[in-house]
Design a protein around this nucleic acid. Structure first.
Lengths: 194, 194, 194, 194
DNA sequence: TATGAATGAGCGTTCATTCAT
DNA sequence: AATGAATGAACGCTCATTCAT
């Protein structure tokens, strides 16, 4: 007979993840001490270690959670039946001020840390693969609807869009603010779409 | 009269920077200890601290050096009088296997660390600004030569190209290898240039 | 009226002692965590703490139990009406492979820990005293039967035999295996008994 | 060019070993914290860790040093051309109040810890082997001089003497004080030597 | 009676930095 | 100019113990 409900355990876990995500976004993985996380979560060392066996595992859990959020954001942007510029603008808005905005520094941290932690690299690679596939599907649909130029290599285009979004994450985070209209303009300029 | 030549000092400084760059590329800023750098440089703690007053300053110096290398790479790629796809391909080759390849992980580290270190952020911002300006100049020249579609918003396009390159840095580093042809294809697909 | 029988309580207590003895024998007092004991006993922290108020008290209980087992082993060896070499051989067999074998590491732990815990030292001292007295009784009986050389200082001899057995505990535990025949031969050699 | 002399380094190392030996003798390996050792040695954490890479290695070094001291003690006792009781009495005096007295609790700790640390077990085993061999040599010499009964199995007798000494270490440490005369009497009683 | 989530002091260890030589 | 021994605050983590359920 469990002492507390499964639900309570899940809530605690999320409480820790939320606190850690905040710390990591603000200070990066390495400049955040476990003590910082204990304080942010309002829990003791032992309590946090009951849910995550090490700082490394906590980082991986945060990374998994953050990367996982990118997929529904893409889906929701793609689902609005807009043209490509519209989809990009929606994504960019999401990254700039939406729910993904908070996670931007975490994305950067994960990519930087992937150099050292193969587990993190795997995570990042698989997420990138999923995103790429979904973008391809979107492009194929748009091609079928005649909304992108005929003959477009959707495979290559999907990669380009992903790189564009990743670059935007860096820009937003480093420059502080890149106006979303600029992205829209950029996309429009080169895509010459409506 | 100094005991040793200015030249000697400069050589020592570079020796330390090279050793540190190697460590940082391999393990990241935070997982590299100063002791790692002493060992890699073959120097004592005191010797290194004579040239750099703290680890933070050493990181900033490395960042400045790494970012500075991006400009000549862009210039050399732009100077070959190729079309845009050619320029992009040259840059991508440089990032994938050229002199910039070694620095890719450092770029990532710098962008990730910029969140915490405003000095680093400034450095990154100014470099990004310089790159953007140079790309704009290139595009204007290509527009003047009729090698990119008339009416292209070169400002917006420059930003897009920079984001694309940054995304490529992430991809290369996280995925391990993105074939350069793919970038060329991507660019060609969307730019519909020769 | 108690909720559960006295018998149940006793069984639980023994269950914990058995689990703890196993852990302590394998890993020593200090390298065994209370969590190890909870797991080995298949009980919760709270359950164990209901029976033993602290790790220290649990250690003392284990020590008392282990030391107490030495007395019946000596009695049973002495009761077989063998000469001194036979008695020693029986004891050594008991320590080497009999019921006392499992407790050998615990004996060592107790002696080592007695340096720090006066309670444990008292326990060890009183057991040593009891053993000494019983060995003396045995020797007096053998002397009366003319089975040890006349004029033997039984007091001194008892002490020697106890030391011999303690040394054997160390040897068995550290060397892994000292053949029992060697002890018999040793004893015979110096006692020149049949 | 070394910063300080080899001699200085050796002195520091010994300073740490001495401090640690004192702590370990007083409180045992596990109840002694590294902080205790820093304080006892009058050094910082970093300084101690420059000489010993871990607490485990420090324990092993202490064990090696302590065990090594047993050999010269035996040699010096054996070298006085006394009969066996005299040699035993000398050893016992050494263990009771001589230079080995301080190390008695450390011996106990090593034997107890050998259960867990195979490296320590190896150390203890090899020392035991050396002691055994030296005792055998001593007995053979005494046998040649006719100072022990003819026909004595010196191999078996050597083992017995070693066990006796080990038992005495336990007794002294646990009981606090066993009068050396008792050992002499014990030995005399059973050896019936002059 | 029994559970097990939670506590938090304290552990062993690292590492940026200093300074006597 | 260069060394490297030394510092000590701070790190990630453990574990004996408690107590609401």
């Amino acid at each position: 007979m469990p002492k507390v409900s499964q639900e309570h355990l899940e809530r605690r876990r999320q409480q820790i993840l939320d606190a850690a995500a905040g710390c990591f976004a603000r200070q990066g993985f390495h400049a955040t001490s476990m003590q910082d996380i204990f304080a942010a979560a309002g829990l003791s060392a032992g309590a946090v270690y009951r849910y995550f066996p090490s700082k490394t595992e906590l980082i991986r859990a945060i990374a998994a959670e953050a990367l996982a959020q990118a997929l529904p954001a893409l889906d929701s942007a793609a689902g609005q039946d807009a043209g490509l510029p519209g989809v990009l603008a929606a994504l960019v808005a999401e990254l700039g001020a939406g729910r993904l905005a908070r996670l931007r520094p975490v994305f950067l941290q994960v990519w930087a840390e992937a150099v050292r932690d193969e587990e993190l690299a795997k995570l990042a690679r698989s997420t990138l693969g999923l995103l790429l596939a979904r973008i391809r599907v979107l492009l194929d649909r748009l091609a079928g609807q005649g909304r992108i130029p005929p003959g477009t290599d959707t495979d290559a285009a999907a990669w380009l869009i992903l790189a564009l979004l990743q670059g935007y994450v860096i820009q937003l985070t480093v420059l502080g603010d890149v106006p979303p209209e600029q992205v829209r303009a950029s996309a429009a300029a080169l895509l010459r779409q409506t």
